[in-house]
Simulated scan of single mutants.
Amino acid sequence: MEKKTENWRSPSLGKEMELTVYGKSGTPIIGLPTRGASCGQWEEFGMVDAISYQLDNEFNQLFCLSSIDTEGFLNENAAPSQRIVRQQQYESYIVEEVVPYIQEQNNINFIIIAGIDLGGCHALTTALKHPAAFGKVIGMSGIYDIKPFMDGFYNDDVYYSNPMDFVPNMSRQSLLERVRDIDFRLVSYEGDERKEDSLRMSNVMRMKFIEHDLDIWGESGDEWDLWPQMLKTHVI
């Protein structure tokens, strides 16, 4: 399949950011890695191979991003207030830089955003806050409550970056209508230490009448054996 690597200095993050593109055309997918990983993780661990048929036959085009979690949620050398600001900058990078880049490369006006672990959190949160930009969200073993990364710190920035908190209070009908148009997939598996987050997030979304697919796989085993198959199942 066609593969290329792009990079530019991100105005949102103030640093050089790299992404890898797989395939020539098709419905675009933004792929977000596990916490702190690079844009090469999905290829290294079989995620790209899992959807190679879709990429080779131009059903999908995949845009793999790098994480900045080591500068944000995982940065113990930064104050929690700085960590959450860095996360907001990453969200801006996705919405204000990556999405327009995809739109320049691809004329299909339907973007799937998929992520694993903290990448699942970023995928879901970004789509909930910017629903006009996305048509589908796939969260695999997502972490949807960020408060454990905040060391007890809490302010409006944390609230509006934490879907467990802000979704129950979403009341603007125009925003809710756009959110309800998105195809949400919350995927986990038995034995997954993050499964409870998917169950809790599902309950929150149900209270707001946000339709979604909660898919808890009965299989157990190595997560990197399961996640590629989850992606393949829910991309189609």
Rank of each mutant, 00 (worst) to 15 (best):
I94E: 01
W8N: 07
G218K: 04
D165V: 08
F153N: 07
F73Y: 15
E190N: 15
V85A: 11
L231I: 07
I116M: 06
N57T: 11
I108Y: 04
S161G: 11
K4F: 02
I138V: 08
S52F: 07
Q82P: 11
F134I: 01
W227C: 02
V21F: 05
I84G: 03
C64L: 09
D222F: 12
V167F: 04
W8V: 04
N109H: 11
L19W: 06
Q61V: 10
L124W: 02
I210K: 00
S198D: 08
S67D: 12
T70K: 12
F166M: 11
K136A: 01
K15F: 02
M47F: 15
D69K: 08
K147R: 14
L199C: 08
D225E: 15
A123P: 02
V235S: 06
W224M: 13
V85M: 09
T125A: 02
V95K: 00
N203A: 15
N106W: 05
D183W: 13
R178A: 11
D181T: 14
D117A: 07
L226Q: 07
G31S: 11
M150C: 06
S198Q: 08
I146Y: 01
L186I: 09
Q105M: 14
F166H: 10
F166S: 05
G31W: 13
Y90Q: 10
G23F: 01
S25P: 00
V137M: 04
G119H: 10
E104A: 10
F153Y: 15
M150L: 02
F59T: 05
K129G: 06
E219H: 07
Q229W: 02
S67Y: 10
G115T: 04
E76W: 15
Q54K: 10
G46K: 03
A132S: 12
Q54W: 12
N60S: 11
S202T: 04
D157G: 01
E190I: 13
D69T: 07
I216C: 01
G115E: 09
F153W: 15
M47P: 03
E6T: 10
Q82A: 14
K129V: 05
I29V: 15
W42V: 02
F134T: 03
I102R: 00
L176F: 00
Y90T: 03
G14C: 13
D215C: 14
P11N: 04
Y53N: 12
E44L: 10
Q41K: 09
P11W: 01
S66G: 13
Q87W: 12
I143Y: 00
I182F: 09
A132R: 06
Q173Y: 01
Y101W: 12
Q105A: 11
D192S: 04
G46S: 02
G218P: 03
A50R: 00
V85N: 08
E44W: 14
D145M: 07
G26F: 05
G46T: 01
R35N: 14
S81W: 08
R185H: 15
R185M: 06
D49W: 06
P148L: 05
S25V: 05
I84N: 03
I210G: 05
E44N: 14
